[in-house]
């Protein structure tokens, strides 16, 4: 057959997708960061080992804030996203105004605002107001992602569901949202990474996250350079690890049906 005579697959110009590069940017950054960290600990354990032993509590806190925030943000984002496509004008306006307002105010300002505004009414722990602030902010971004994801599902899907006698809300739940999930998972993963980084902002409200632990250590020992080097490297390793996970998820989804 003709296929035998035209060796298209032998072309070498375009790297094939399955081929793994040995020195990809990701690998250089990730293993580089780990390597430097290990090197520093072995080379001069005096400040570096102490710093590293001081930080795990902070990493845990950062995680806690990030995961709680993203979960709450997903709930808010889902409501905002559904609100944005709602045909009820009132709901639509509320969702749109929420998204416009929140996206127009810096996260740091929002954190202060929610902390002090809520602090006037009820006494809530720092970590709670930090999580609320992050979730309210990221809920707006996720809302737009979810809106776009819902609209990316072909219109015929809703029509077919309606034609079978499903109500609009049931069609949403059984047909549209499961397909939206597949579309929005990668961008939500990216938001998760962004949130992980932005969670360092909550260190200004006595939440002892990774950055704040670093600040505490540095303030005691005056080893600012060394401490922040380690803090930066730890953040880098965490975000690179998660971006690897997101990439894996993306590959998994694109290999799947459709």
């Amino acid at each position: 057959m003709a296929r035998d005579r035209i060796p298209i697959s032998d072309a070498t110009l375009i790297p094939r997708k399955g081929e793994r590069e040995i020195f990809s940017a990701w690998k250089i950054s990730f293993f580089g960061a780990i390597g430097i960290l290990i090197f520093l600990v072995i080379y001069s354990p005096d400040p570096y080992k102490n710093i590293i032993l001081f930080l795990p509590d902070g990493i845990l806190k950062t995680f806690q804030v990030t995961v709680l925030s993203i979960l709450l943000a997903l709930v808010i984002g889902l409501m905002a996203g559904l609100g944005r496509i709602s045909r009820v004008r009132f709901i639509n306006r509320i969702a749109t105004v929420y998204i416009e307002v929140i996206r127009g105010i810096p996260l740091l300002v929002q954190i202060f605002y929610i902390y002090y505004a809520l602090g006037r009414i009820v006494k809530i722990p720092d970590i709670t107001s930090a999580v609320i602030a992050m979730a309210v902010c990221y809920g707006a971004y996720l809302g737009e992602i979810i809106r776009a994801g819902i609209q990316a599902v072909p219109k015929g899907q809703m029509e077919a569901a309606l034609a079978l006698g499903l109500s609009r809300s049931r069609a949403m739940r059984h047909i549209i949202l499961p397909q939206t999930l597949r579309i929005v998972l990668p961008p939500i993963g990216n938001e998760f990474i962004a949130l992980l980084k932005d969670s360092s902002l909550v260190s200004i409200l006595a939440v002892s996250d990774l950055l704040r632990r670093g600040r505490e250590y540095a303030a005691h020992t005056f080893e600012y350079f060394e401490t922040y080097t380690v803090v930066a490297l730890v953040y880098l390793i965490l975000t690179l690890f998660f971006s690897w996970l997101v990439g894996l998820m993306e590959a998994r989804l694109s290999r799947d049906v459709r």
Partner: peptide, 16 residues
């Protein structure tokens, strides 16, 4: 809609 079934030009099967 339960009484009247419908078949579309573009099939519109549920992809998931």
């Amino acid at each position: 809609r339960e009484e009247a079934g419908m078949v579309f030009q573009s099939f519109n099967l549920f992809f998931h």
